[in-house]
């Protein structure tokens, strides 16, 4: 990965008496696709607006390419934004919307024409240049918004839940296309979403946020496989969280049994939370199993069944292609490297 392009240092921001960003620290690399992920109200949009220059941080500094840009107006930043509901100019047609930034830069007519036509081709809207915005579908408006930002060749593109208004099919298509564009253009994308699947699919790096704080930064694989807290485990995909005790390094006890695991560095007999993903639990014969339970409910999900199994009063969720009937006694097994241990969160 390239050098650090943006450094946000000790950023705090409040609206009234509500603290939205709390001593926030983040750096963003060149050519990175970074996603700020969190529930609504976690401060991710505010973080984006500070980068865009639409809000000023109460405290802390924003560095861009080695220069502090706290006081720089939005129009002086080499950063463009793709707004949540697109914010396309209703009084201009597609061409003029896209050409807006270039005209401000006083580029020659020919150069503008060439760039606009190229970008239209890239977002697959060739032939739409004279259409008014109100005559476009949501997906097309989305593409215009992206084109309008990208045509300026910014160093960084900020995207604020750009796909939220689209239907599922279109959303998946656009996810793929956005990722392609980012790879092709080599532009840093800072992407804000509350959709964990979107984050996992597209990002190089995911920043999980809640209540104005960063909970975890990592690759999608890291975040999914090694969630650092109960919140992250629950927010990213589904998780079974079981209370356990760490006996020693590489050994944990839960459901009254001792299991081998790959985690270490906890105190002896420390109370911990054990996280197991639903797809990592497998059915085996009850006689050979350390975990035994009764099938409680069953839903067909297409690719797999979602089966809830009651084990010692605790409900475990299992994703499996194997079929079991409600009331069946089943045994469950889990591989040591699929057992993930985090410190016990007593507040949860």
């Amino acid at each position: 990965m390239g050098k650090k392009l943006i450094i946000m240092k000790n950023i705090s921001k409040s609206f009234g008496d509500q603290l939205v960003l709390d001593n926030f620290n983040l750096y963003i690399n060149e050519n990175e696709f970074i996603t700020l992920l969190g529930p609504s109200g976690c401060g991710k949009t505010t973080c984006l607006r500070i980068l865009g220059g639409f809000e000023t941080a109460d405290e802390g500094t924003v560095e861009f390419n080695g220069k502090i840009i706290n006081d720089l107006e939005p129009n002086q930043r080499e950063i463009n934004t793709c707004f949540q509901k697109y914010a396309l100019f209703p009084h201009l047609n597609v061409y003029d919307n896209i050409a807006f930034g270039l005209k401000i830069k006083k580029m020659s007519k020919d150069a503008i024409h060439e760039r606009v036509m190229n970008i239209l081709k890239m977002v697959k809207l060739t032939g739409f240049e004279n259409r008014m915005i109100s005559t476009l579908s949501g997906g097309q408006q989305q593409r215009v918004a992206i084109a309008r930002a990208l045509v300026n060749r910014p160093k960084v593109l900020l995207l604020d839940e750009p796909l939220a208004a689209l239907d599922l099919k279109l959303r998946q298509e656009m996810q793929y296309e956005l990722k392609e564009m980012q790879r092709e253009l080599g532009i840093t994308f800072v992407y804000v979403t509350h959709d964990q699947e979107e984050a996992l699919t597209m990002s190089d790096t995911i920043v999980v946020m809640d209540h104005g704080k960063i909970l975890q930064i990592g690759t999608p694989e890291d975040i999914y496989n090694e969630p650092s807290s109960r919140f992250v485990a629950n927010f990213i995909g589904e998780s079974n969280i079981i209370k356990g005790v760490m006996l020693e390094d590489y050994s944990v006890e839960f459901f009254g049994e001792t299991f081998e695991c790959v985690d270490k560095g906890f105190k002896k007999s420390e109370a911990v939370d054990v996280i197991i993903r639903p797809e990592d639990l497998d059915f085996i014969s009850p006689s050979k199993a350390k975990i035994v339970g009764i099938v409680d409910s069953l839903i067909f999900r297409g690719v797999h069944y979602e089966i809830n199994v009651l084990v010692e009063g605790k409900e475990l969720t299992i994703h499996t292609t194997k079929h079991r009937k409600i009331g069946d006694k089943v045994g469950l097994s889990v591989e040591p490297n699929n057992i993930h241990i985090i410190p016990r969160d007593n507040n949860a």
Binding site: G52, G53, F54, E73, P74, N75, I79, N80, T81, F83, Q84, K85, A87, L88, F89, P90, F100, G101, I104, K105, R148, A149, N152
Partner: peptide
């Protein structure tokens, strides 16, 4: 008027 439009213009470099 949608304030986002004014922000969008500034974002695209307009004074």
């Amino acid at each position: 008027m949608d304030y986002k439009l004014i922000e969008a213009a500034k974002d695209l470099g307009a004074s």
